[in-house]
Design a protein around this nucleic acid. Sequence first.
DNA 1: CTGGTACTTTAGGTACGACCAAATTTGTGG
DNA 2: CCACAAATTTGGTCGTACCTAAAGTACCAG
Lengths: 257, 257
Amino acid sequence: MAEPANSTNGTIRNPVRLSPMQVPKASDVLANDLRERILRGEFAEGTALPPERELVVQTGMSRTTVREALRILEVQGLVRVKTGRAGGAFVQHPGEESVAESVDLMIRGRKIRIPALLETREAIEPACARLAAHARTEEDLDRLEVANDDIVAAPDLEAFLQANIDWHVGVATASHNELLTGFMLALSRAIYVSTRNTQFVDAEVRATTVRAHRSVTAAIRAQDPNAAVRRMTRHVHTYAEAVLKVEERTDVDVQDG
Amino acid sequence: MAEPANSTNGTIRNPVRLSPMQVPKASDVLANDLRERILRGEFAEGTALPPERELVVQTGMSRTTVREALRILEVQGLVRVKTGRAGGAFVQHPGEESVAESVDLMIRGRKIRIPALLETREAIEPACARLAAHARTEEDLDRLEVANDDIVAAPDLEAFLQANIDWHVGVATASHNELLTGFMLALSRAIYVSTRNTQFVDAEVRATTVRAHRSVTAAIRAQDPNAAVRRMTRHVHTYAEAVLKVEERTDVDVQDG
DNA sequence: CTGGTACTTTAGGTACGACCAAATTTGTGG
DNA sequence: CCACAAATTTGGTCGTACCTAAAGTACCAG
């Protein structure tokens, strides 16, 4: 049998049994350690981590490994790396932008279509409006007014859609809920790029949009949650139906052509 | 003046004006190129990118640079790297897990508290329930039943909370909306870790939870969107209030201590 | 004293080259 | 035919050298 036998001199041969063990990568170990410390708040935001060569002597790892760890943290939005003297890896805490980027990758990679994007917006934006009606500040209201004025003054489709993003993200911002804001940011951008090439935004659509925005803004200003929800629900639903109708027609056109 | 003058022999000295230009990092250039191709669907999911040393000869970059680019893509969830022969960087499209991780970093980094987490859940989970009532399959319903049975059979708080996650994520899954699913996944996990240390989950809370889940599940099964929304709204609100009440009392205790 | 230019210093970015570790494939002896 | 050993492929780590960016410093001309 394969079982180890003990020798006659009293030496015990192989009593120890080991289960297969996973050896984590050195760069991951460093990255995990630094990440936990950053998230724990051990370093104030904006402070610089030690220089790469310093981390090398502190950790005993090679510079390659140290750099890979820092790159991981950079991609995760936990540090921002600057070059040159007085450069280095500066601590920051990931926020809306970071989440938005990740959501963007998922949308593009999974080829999530406009219908699903609009459906998602219909799902969460009314809730944003409700919270905004509770938490909005004067500053929030100003932002909404500015964005809506930009829509009125928009010279072309590009400007219209950009101002549209600003307004919708503005509502999320007014909710003072960072999670929802990050999510809406990604969602609005995705809807923007998916709508960029459609031709359905005529003068009437723009006028309707502006009216709806004003109506929702008024409810938020009046701190009337129910009205805000109702009007926002109606607005995003109407918008979605309009987009889908055009989409459908475009599909038919494509099939005919 | 500092303006360059032309010499007398007809040579033109410095007619060219250059604006400050940003030199992107080589590793970013490679990463961006590969990322766009992956998102464009140029490589089927699961296919392997060329080996690092092969990319070196193809791009003319050093292996260090190539590896950094691959690490970026790995962190973004666009490739999965395996070691050993027949290993390499395998293409994948980022999904729920990737978004959940990013949201987790934001929650921990920004120190988002339980009240905000519960508020966010109250904002989006009713919408998940509505969509689930429309899109649920028999398989989805099975998952919900299993999760709820697990709650009943849970021997300790840990198991209860885990099964609770499963049920809530199950509702999101039943909505067949990948974006909402990813978001709810992150949210549920965050609420889990924030609730892990509280003592408020007694037998009564568990019984109430199970009843509420059954009620929501029934509405989803019956494809009754309005009932699903109403019951889910009530459930998450009740749960939130219970958690917050305990939180508050704990705070008081801390102050008294 | 002022201002600019050139040098120095500090930090990240890139390039090689060598070797280690893991996983698969292949070879070989029983 | 099977089990075990060796070769092969591919990522992981290390060390060194050198380049580039940015900030500070010294110094010289006006």
